[in-house]
Design a protein around this nucleic acid. Structure first.
Lengths: 169, 169
DNA sequence: CCAGACTCACGTCACCCACTAAAGAGGCTA
DNA sequence: TAGCCTCTTTAGTGGGTGACGTGAGTCTGG
């Protein structure tokens, strides 16, 4: 029921990329590692995975580095986490069997429940975009989180606001 | 991002208990294991954990076994999963620091995001009650899932309906 | 050609999950 | 009281995997 450090690191790396996307040209892994405080060799393979998922582009050689492949508005938490941690599900106990008999009591009931929960988590994580997190980072840059809380997600209490529920996979 | 088998097994065991709560008297671990097809010794320690969390009561000796400690309407998935898998969070990277400076770029932004996501998962899992799952198990008992889809949660697409959002911990 | 960058293939260390094994302790019946 | 049934507790184990480290490639620009 947790995201691994890979998911967290990947998000922070992409957030760092998004925050410095103005400085014309790619950002090296070394630079990202320094700014985010993440272990560089680990970060390298994470960025590789993000590249494999098509979230970043890379350029080799001197002056090379990584760049966001899409505008931050089109990158969601669900995509990031799924890229490095595999598909977002709430338990991989197989698919809910539909036609044949359920071998054991309550098994298929739980299977459909887990499937629903996974679906819900995906759509919720899809509601967090990278650009929103950029806004947050800029907003709380000088560490004032007193009254600037009119974000898309209410921070502590209650429900996230209704929104278009983008779904990907 | 997944629940372990413990969470699944615990839910199935409790569902089994709830389904046979009429037959006057506790249900033995052996019986539950047989009905659900779960490994008995493993199931034993899971039930122990559920007892520690106050979800079931136990009675020893001949004719002993386990009983639900509360009516099924007051037992939610969040409670079950939290009892056997620990608190429901979306990543345990510490609390979002509020006063001091964020050591690294975007760190506290992600921390608050994970905290929000965890909160959201908890309230969503809290919306599944054991009695609802009993209804589902009874409804699809003879394996017809064609048109009996007016459950509280829509099964595949879309949002769960608005509801009182019980929160526990 | 060379230095700076990404790329790739291992290695490893420790922790945790799923499960087994075995002995103990309480409680009911005879 | 004996004896069985059930829960209770503790230990242990095998496999997997998460989080890195290491080192050798490979590409690119000057």
């Amino acid at each position: 029921m947790k995201v691994s450090t890979r998911g967290d690191y990947a998000s922070r790396a992409l957030l760092s990329l998004a925050l410095h996307t103005d400085s014309s040209g790619p950002t090296s892994v070394h630079e990202v590692a320094e700014r985010t405080g993440l272990p560089q060799p680990y970060l390298e393979q994470i960025l590789l995975a993000l590249k494999g998922a098509g979230l970043v582009r890379s350029k080799r050689g001197v002056g090379g580095g990584y760049t966001l492949a899409r505008p931050p508005k089109e990158i969601t938490l669900a995509q990031i986490v799924a890229a490095v941690d595999g598909p977002i599900v709430a338990g991989d106990f197989g698919e809910p069997h539909e036609n044949g008999a359920c071998e054991h009591e309550g098994q298929c009931v739980l299977l459909t429940v887990w499937s629903e929960v996974g679906q819900h988590m995906r759509s919720h994580l899809n509601s967090y975009t990278l650009s929103e997190m950029v806004d947050r980072a800029r907003g709380t840059k000088s560490l004032k989180l007193d009254s600037s809380m009119e974000h898309t997600h209410s921070p502590i209490t209650g429900e996230p606001n209704a929104r278009p529920e983008v779904e990907s996979a």
